[in-house]
Deep mutational scan, measured.
Amino acid sequence: ENVVSAPMPGKVLRVLVRVGDRVRVGQGLLVLEAMKMENEIPSPRDGVVKRILVKEGEIVDTGQPLIELG
């Protein structure tokens, strides 16, 4: 699984990683606000951040690609 998608609609509050960062399974990639709750979106696997597909403040839909892992 190379693309991390939004599990719910919401607003991207914070991106916690940068392109080139090594991440571990379960590590927070970004914080999504949904229904006034902050939800940290975890990495599904170990890898390297290849691309960040959203910006802070952006509104996303369920299933929208957020981050690509390499």
Rank of each mutant, 00 (worst) to 15 (best):
R51M: 05
V60I: 04
G20E: 09
V15E: 03
K50S: 07
P42M: 11
G47P: 15
V4A: 05
A6T: 06
G20C: 14
D46T: 06
R18Y: 11
L66G: 05
S43D: 12
E38Q: 03
D21H: 14
V54C: 14
P65K: 14
V4E: 01
R45V: 11
I41G: 14
V49R: 15
T62L: 05
V60D: 15
L29V: 02
V23P: 06
I41W: 04
G63K: 04
P44D: 00
V15C: 15
L53K: 12
L13H: 02
G10H: 01
D21E: 08
R18V: 10
V17I: 01
G26C: 14
P65Y: 03
R22G: 13
R51I: 12
D61G: 00
V49T: 01
E58G: 12
G10F: 02
L66K: 15
V4G: 06
P42R: 06
I67D: 15
V4D: 12
I41D: 15
E68F: 13
K11G: 06
K11N: 10
G70E: 11
P7M: 04
G20M: 01
E33I: 02
K55G: 00
E40F: 00
A6C: 15
R14F: 08
V17T: 07
G26E: 03
L16H: 10
V25L: 04
V60Y: 09
L53C: 15
E33R: 05
D61P: 05
R45K: 02
E68S: 15
S5W: 13
V4H: 06
P7A: 01
R51C: 13
P9L: 12
V25G: 08
Q27K: 04
I67Y: 01
E40P: 04
G63A: 07
L16R: 01
V23I: 07
V3I: 07
Q27M: 13
V31P: 15
K50P: 05
E33H: 02
M8F: 13
Q64W: 05
G28C: 14
V48A: 05
G26N: 13
M35I: 00
S5C: 14
P44W: 09
V54I: 05
R18W: 04
E38K: 03
E56A: 01
R18Q: 01
L30P: 15
G57W: 04
L69G: 04
R18T: 01
E33P: 03
E40G: 11
P9E: 08
R24N: 04
E33N: 04
K50N: 03
V31L: 11
G63E: 02
P65D: 12
A34M: 04
P44K: 13
I52G: 09
E68R: 15
V54D: 15
A34C: 15
M37P: 02
M37H: 08
E58T: 09
D21Q: 09
K55E: 04
E38A: 11
S43Y: 11
L16T: 12
E56M: 06
I52D: 01
G20R: 02
E38N: 11
L32F: 05
S43W: 01
R18L: 09
P7N: 12
V19N: 10
G47L: 13
L66E: 15
V12Y: 13
G26I: 03
P42L: 08
T62M: 09
T62Y: 05
I41V: 09
V25S: 09
G70K: 11
L69P: 02
E38M: 09
V23Q: 10
R14Q: 02
L32C: 15
P7W: 05
G10I: 00
G28I: 03
D61M: 05
R51L: 03
G57R: 00
D21L: 08
V60G: 11
Q27V: 13
A6E: 02
A34P: 06
E38R: 04
Q64K: 11
G20H: 13
L66W: 12
L66Y: 10
K50I: 02
P42Y: 03
N39P: 00
I52H: 08
I67R: 15
V4Y: 06
R14Y: 08
E1F: 15
G63D: 02
G28K: 05
P42T: 03
V17Y: 01
M35K: 13
V48D: 06
V15D: 07
K50T: 12
Q64T: 02
L69F: 09
V23G: 12
E1H: 15
V23E: 01
E38V: 01
M37F: 04
L53N: 01
V3M: 02
E68P: 15
S5R: 14
T62D: 07
M37T: 04
G28E: 13
E1Y: 15
K11Q: 08
V31Q: 12
G63M: 09
M8T: 01
L69A: 01
G26L: 08
D46I: 11
L13D: 07
E40H: 07
M35V: 11
D21R: 14
I59P: 05
N39T: 06
R22N: 08
I52Q: 01
